[in-house]
Design a protein around this nucleic acid. Structure first.
Lengths: 229, 229
DNA sequence: CTCCGTTTCATACACTTGTTTGAAACGCCC
DNA sequence: GGGCGTTTCAAACAAGTGTATGAAACGGAG
């Protein structure tokens, strides 16, 4: 009866209209943002009644929270799985940096390219979640990322001896920014305005090649010898 | 009489309430986004009447456009000035990569730290401008960036022999993403949720140190030898 | 079939949004 | 000071927003 419970609030989880709402909301949230998508558009696209969203999820914020959770969970799970796999493969030795970055980056890229079911990347809204959403969403997202950050920080610190924790903190923010922004460009490659100003156009790289480019860039940035004052 | 003219539409530019609206709008847009800030909040914060914004700027979109223009102009101007200065200093030789990045990054960082007049960085909204705003704003922003991109692309290509244009295109998107995201974190360093999950806390770096960290990271990433398949 | 909890529906409510309107106040030049 | 273009103001408008309500439809258990 605790109304602050986030998962499985009032309804029994699996339900046709419920998941239909979640799917439509995820697609529309990714395209126009949470505040930018009216509930009516969600219900229209999902083919359900307007009141359904207020019945299954108590409010729009709760809906957004569950969309975030449903999208973030599998991705972070995959990240951890890939990292542990790489650690097992490396034995006791430090995991190669490129392997770590692959585990961090690839799940969200793969999800972007019409992955397991929801075709549009919702991960792009994660970065914006701290600005647009209320403190509830922000806290949930950051809590969801807590373990990820800790595990990957440790792995990277082992892979790059001499890198301080403070320097890593900033370089991780650089890395995450690179990931989100370039993913946005990659996802809407054909129609992105900033690309049309270049004279020459190049074919859109596929998922693997894009990830490789990003990993190469990030690995070099992470390994850079810090400027000592 | 051309109503599609963007700069100096109906009013004679300088006017007390007009600039008050622009200032308040810039501050609020940066904090809550364009769609997230009602006109009433702008006029209230500016201490002017509600109808003033529709009188001086015809519509809210026009207001946003002028806010973008007023913020983007000086920053890009500074960028070009710094780059030309570095080129003059280098004679005919290629400008050192770090100098180029400094010219690209420093103006927006400096603007962020309570610069010339408007204290809050509006530059953060630039990246989002393609998602939230209509095609008018997107086209304006991308046109505004056209020269910047071309000039800096050329300079970087000269500084890093062997780097292909296609690879540079992607690495620039990585760099811009790093800049925007880390700037967001840096600006709200004390209260950012993602930072509170780390055990240890470090003092917020000052403007110079933050820029140096980013430049070190980006320079290494740009210089990375591309993975050849 | 009947009953009852669950789900769906049409409709309405209260509120906020951007924009418009017409009158009042202001600042000048003659 | 009178007249007039420019600017400000209070009030209202129409449209869209999230949410609440109560009745109708559904679907098994008795």
């Amino acid at each position: 009866m605790n109304s602050t419970d986030l998962t499985a609030d009032a309804a029994n989880a699996s339900c046709a209209t419920r998941t239909a709402i979640l799917d439509a909301a995820e697609r529309l949230f990714a395209k126009h943002g949470v505040d930018g998508t009216p509930i009516r558009q969600i219900t229209h696209e999902a083919g359900v009644n307007l009141a359904a969203v207020n019945y299954h999820f108590r409010t729009k914020a709760h809906l957004a929270l569950e969309v975030y959770a449903r999208c973030l969970g599998p991705i972070n799970q995959q990240r951890l799985t890939l990292l542990e796999e790489a650690e097992r493969e490396a034995g006791g030795a430090p995991v190669p940096l490129e392997k770590i970055l692959e585990a961090l980056i690839y799940p969200v890229v793969r999800d972007r390219v019409s992955g397991n079911g929801h075709e549009i990347a919702f991960i792009l809204l994660m970065g914006r979640s701290f600005q647009e959403q209320g403190p509830e969403v922000s806290r949930f997202v950051s809590r969801e990322f807590a373990e990820i950050v800790k595990r990957f920080d440790d792995a990277i610190l082992r892979a790059i001896p001499g890198l301080t924790q403070e320097e890593l903190l900033w370089r991780m923010s650089f890395l995450i920014g690179s990931l989100h922004h370039s993913l946005d460009i990659w996802g809407r490659y054909e129609s992105h305005p900033i690309l049309s100003i270049r004279d020459a156009r190049y074919p859109k790289p596929d998922c693997k090649e894009y990830a490789r480019r990003l990993i190469t860039f990030a690995a070099a940035g992470l390994r850079a010898t810090p400027f000592l004052p």
